[in-house]
Amino acid sequence: MGYSCVVLVKQVPDTKRITGQAMNDDGTVNRAALPTIFNPEDLYALEMALDIRDRFGGTVAVVTMGPPAACEVLRESFYRGADRCVLITDRKAAASDTLATSYILSCAVRKIGRSDVVLCGRQAIDGDTAQVGPQLAEKLGIPQITCVQELHVLNGQTIRVTRNIGNGFELVECRLPVLLTVLDGAPMPRPSAGRRMMKYKKARARVEVEMDLAARMPDADQATRSAQVQTQMAVLAEKNLQIEQWTLADIGADLTWCGREGSPTKVHRIQSIVLTGKGHKSVQATDEAVAGMVEELITDHTIG
């Protein structure tokens, strides 16, 4: 029988590599100019789920909410060993804060079916809030264990883990189902497996197939194109190369709790930290230049 694990993963801009080129003139971050990556701590969450399956049996499903491009992290999850991947994509989900995000994810996790262990990364490197995990646990009505560094045993109905809480450690036991948020100090994620890569690089979600056909058959009429999509999806399904794709309607989400409307937090103002094209701002070793830098640090609340 084994354990049913669901891992929530997010595709994020590589915020460590932000340079001047990635800033818009109005000071906002131009996400399109940044490479996207698998949120680092989510790889550790995936590894913990795969480890549970390998040691105790079960299945690993991976879910992400994002634009079609987020299929990239799902394929990567397949390469590393995921059994099933789901993309939640819907324009009505745009501008969701953590409350709306966790609501949408909770609907998706419920639709997947029974889950014994739900795993998140501790924190995403773009929004940087670390709130989605605990909020998702609350929405699912299950306990949470945050900052998990090590999984010791899964024993029938209980799990035992070590939390790393910065100033110490806690050994904690809890009954299933439970939600874990996993830290980057947990066991190293396994690399992609060559054989799985060969197979799953062809995995696609419907929206990707549609976009691909639109590019390849720009003159075809609607009917021809949807017939083509049907055929290709059937082939993918047969070969188990399908990335399942759900809208908010598919997961039965109530729109009043999704997207901008479902989000109580609003952005009042964004200031960018001054970066030059070179990545850092050169400051001369003069009194004036050093004072100018200190003034900037005071103005943007870094010191003072």
């Binding site: 409350l99 605990p134 609340h301």
Partner: peptide
């Protein structure tokens, strides 16, 4: 570690907003 574990759980149950890790 405690505040960041607890506050989101409350905000979710209350269905209210929560801003993370403020510096001012």
């Amino acid at each position: 570690p405690i505040g960041r574990d607890l506050a989101p759980r409350i905000a979710s149950a209350m269905k209210c907003g929560l801003t993370a890790d403020c510096t001012d």
